[in-house]
């Protein structure tokens, strides 16, 4: 059972102890926190599935596997100066 009187007393006490500065500062903190979350998002960690990882690894391997072409290095003398 919830004790209504206790809850009401706690709210009365909290409000009675507030000053303009304390309450304004608390409200500002709440709003700052909301803005930061809105801009950057809260972020969370998420486990990647084995299937997703395998697919990613395969793509990376395939794209680097045909590494048999030579690098075409242009001599520095052939560079044109930027105007």
């Amino acid at each position: 059972m919830i004790d209504f009187k206790k809850l009401a007393d706690k709210l009365d006490k909290a409000l009675a102890e507030e000053t303009k500065e304390s309450l304004t500062s608390w409200l500002e903190d709440q709003r700052k926190m909301c803005s930061i979350t809105n801009i950057y998002g809260k972020g969370s960690t998420e486990e990647l599935s084995a299937q997703l990882l395998q697919s990613y690894q395969k793509q990376t391997f395939d794209s680097t596997n045909s590494n048999d072409s030579e690098l075409d290095v242009t001599p520095s003398t052939e560079y044109q100066m930027a105007a």
Binding site: I2, K6, K10, L15
Partner: peptide
């Protein structure tokens, strides 16, 4: 601030 979370 009123700590209601302790009682419900």
């Amino acid at each position: 601030k009123a700590s209601w979370k302790d009682d419900m």
